[in-house]
């Protein structure tokens, strides 16, 4: 390995670390803020709506997000793969993605004037594993049925 390669590697690592950390912090701030805002809105994983919601309309709502791992985290993961154990850097990534997807679904439901979202499901798919030159990205999809009181 030449000196230039090592320098490029270190620069990428530093970029990944600083920008990744900044992005994660501001994302968490936004998530926490929006979660506070919509705290009173119920999301249920139950599949049978309560009988009190007899005169309501149902429609599908969904939120998705694709997130990518930064260079630094990928490096940490590669190191961690040598000894095994908990991969904290990926845990926070997936946690963020899931909360973001759920919030997007919730916001869509609130826009439609729903009172509750029933049958919430969260699904995670890795779009590409990130081997070699490929881009490691993970998609999280949250979907459910928004129950909207019918007008009239």
């Amino acid at each position: 390995m030449s000196w230039i390669e090592i320098a490029v590697f270190l620069v990428l690592l530093a970029l990944g670390y600083f920008f990744g950390r900044y992005a994660e912090r501001s994302h968490y701030r936004s998530i926490l803020w929006r979660e506070q805002e919509s705290l009173g809105f119920p999301l249920l994983t139950l599949r049978t709506p309560p009988s009190s919601l007899a005169r309501c309309d149902a429609s599908l709502v969904a939120g998705n997000v694709v997130v990518s791992v930064d260079y630094f985290k990928r490096f940490l993961a590669a190191l961690r793969a040598l000894v095994g154990g908990r991969l904290k850097s990926y845990e926070s990534l997936l946690d963020r993605a899931r909360r973001e997807a759920v919030l997007r679904m919730k916001e869509q439901a609130m826009d439609r004037g729903a009172v509750v979202v029933m049958g919430v499901r969260i699904e995670t798919a890795s779009i590409s594993k990130g081997k070699g030159q490929a881009i490691g990205s993970i998609e999280v999809l949250a979907y459910g049925t928004a129950i909207v009181p019918s007008r009239g």
């Binding site: 970029l15 997130v67 260079y71 985290k73 990534l93």
Partner: peptide, 9 residues
Amino acid sequence: LKNIFGGEL
């Protein structure tokens, strides 16, 4: 690019 910096695609 995002693959270096991380974040939403």
